[in-house]
Each structure stands twice: as C-alpha cells, then as structure tokens.
Computed example of a mutant assay.
Amino acid sequence: MKKISYSLIEEQEGKTWKPDDHISFVDLLADERYCGISYNEKEEVRGLLKKNPEFWKQRPLTERMKRVAADDVKFLLHIHQKMVRKLGPLSRWQLKLRGSLYCRCFCVDAGVYQDWPDLPGPPDEIEAELSELQEILSAVDVPPGKMGYIIGKKGASILRIKESCKADIFTGGAKGPPDKVFVIGIMKEVRKAEAMLRGRIGVRSM
C-alpha cells in the first residue's frame, strides 16, 4: 500500500512514475513531505540484510533489531496519515480499489474469490466520465516451462510490457500462484498487456 499511495501522490502532482520505480522506507523518512529525517540505523540494517538474507531469522533478536522493527510501525503510521491527507477524492478511491485488487492476487482459489466484498465504486463527487478509470485485475495462466519467456533475461521482457502498457504486472512468485501473471490497470491497458503476455507465452525456443 505504501508504494501505491506514493505513486498516486506522484501522479497527482504531475510527476512521472514508472511501474518498477522503488521507494524505500528510508527514502520516505527522508522526504520532507512526510518526515524529513535521516535514519542511519535503518540503513545499517539494510546493509546487513543484503549481506545476509537470513538476517531477520536470527534469534534471539538483538536490541537494534527490536528498535528498527518497532520504528517501522511507529513511523509508517505517521507516514500513512500524511499520505492519506494528500490524496484527493479520485486518488483515495484508486488507492482502495488498487489495494483490493492486489489482495486478490494472492488469495486466488481456483480462480474464485470466495466471500470477497464488492470492489469499491467511484465516489459521488467524482464526475461520471472518470469512471472509465476503474481498474480491473486479470490473471493470465502460464503453461509449465513458459514463465521464463514472460520474464525474459534479467526481467527485460516483462519490463518492456510494463512500460508499453502502463499497468502493474507481476508474477505470483513465492507469495502467490507460481503459474500466473497478474495485471492491474484500466481495461484498455490490461487487454493490451494480456495480448503481449500471450505473445510471449507463444514464443518457442530456437
């Protein structure tokens, strides 16, 4: 949700936001719009995590680990409140909608979303023609052995599709179904992405 909120604020302020742009917690803390503080200890922990991906599995937790984990919660709440205040009616609706769609990506049960509430519709104060900005979720099935064609060397293929379609595209990976690619965006861009993804699935090895 942090990335979604940040990207919506950037778009709202007329800035360009690319699908694979990354905003870290430390960057958010340093941003004058949200906190405007540096967090050296968090940077140090990030460095340790890069060296040892198992860093957070260490037990017992050190005092520094406890401080950093607690600060994540403390500062994120403050940042969230500031972000929400910056979002206009349209962006707040898009945040709710996109957040709901992201959640569904990792709760797929044979293609059915059981007991899910309806997706939020646009608020009354948004003009009717803006309803075309309604985003949808598409789950593209990928046959065994074809995911590599979707992703491409060092992620080049999927990045090209993202840049061409102005949609969020990601695989289930370790957190979701490994045989699906999810696409979130307005209908026109989602349909375009689906066609490009299926084109990659149809690629045959030479």
Rank of each mutant, 00 (worst) to 15 (best):
F55G: 04
C105E: 13
K162C: 10
I186H: 08
K74D: 05
K175E: 14
P120R: 05
D109L: 08
A193F: 05
C103F: 12
P120M: 06
A139F: 01
W17P: 00
P120D: 08
G36Y: 07
G172K: 07
L77I: 10
V73S: 10
I79F: 08
S38V: 12
Q94L: 15
E10D: 02
R198G: 01
P122I: 07
P122R: 11
V112C: 05
R200L: 14
D179I: 00
V84I: 15
I4F: 06
L28I: 08
E11C: 04
E129H: 12
P60T: 08
A193G: 09
D27P: 00
M1T: 09
I169Q: 01
V45F: 01
K42W: 04
V142S: 06
G36V: 07
G202M: 11
R67C: 01
P177G: 01
R92V: 00
A156L: 09
D27H: 04
D179M: 01
P144C: 01
D118K: 11
K15C: 02
K3M: 10
A128W: 04
I150P: 05
T16M: 05
L133N: 12
E44L: 07
W56V: 05
G111H: 10
I158A: 02
E54D: 14
K74Y: 13
Y34C: 03
T16Q: 13
I4T: 14
D115W: 03
W93V: 05
V68F: 03
K180T: 02
G173S: 11
P117Q: 11
L95A: 11
G14E: 06
F106T: 13
G185V: 09
K153W: 06
D168Q: 08
M196Q: 14
M147E: 03
D168F: 03
L119D: 14
S38I: 07
D124K: 13
N52K: 07
E11S: 11
R98D: 04
R98E: 15
K188S: 13
P89Y: 07
F55L: 11
F75Q: 08
S164H: 09
L61E: 10
P53R: 04
P60A: 06
W116S: 08
R200M: 10
C103P: 00
F170D: 06
H22D: 09
I23L: 12
Q134T: 15
M147F: 09
V140T: 12
N52Q: 07
L137F: 05
L77A: 12
E132M: 09
I23A: 03
E135F: 02
S131F: 01
Y39M: 03
A156C: 13
Y6R: 15
L130N: 07
G199L: 04
I161L: 10
H22Y: 12
I150A: 10
P122F: 06
S91E: 15
G36N: 04
L133E: 13
P123M: 07
D179H: 14
G88E: 13
M187F: 04
I23C: 11
R67A: 00
S24Y: 05
K50W: 01
S131H: 13
L130C: 05
K57A: 05
G176F: 01
P89V: 10
L48E: 12
D21E: 15
Q58P: 00
A156N: 14
P122Y: 06
L159Y: 01
I23Y: 10
Q114D: 06
R59C: 00
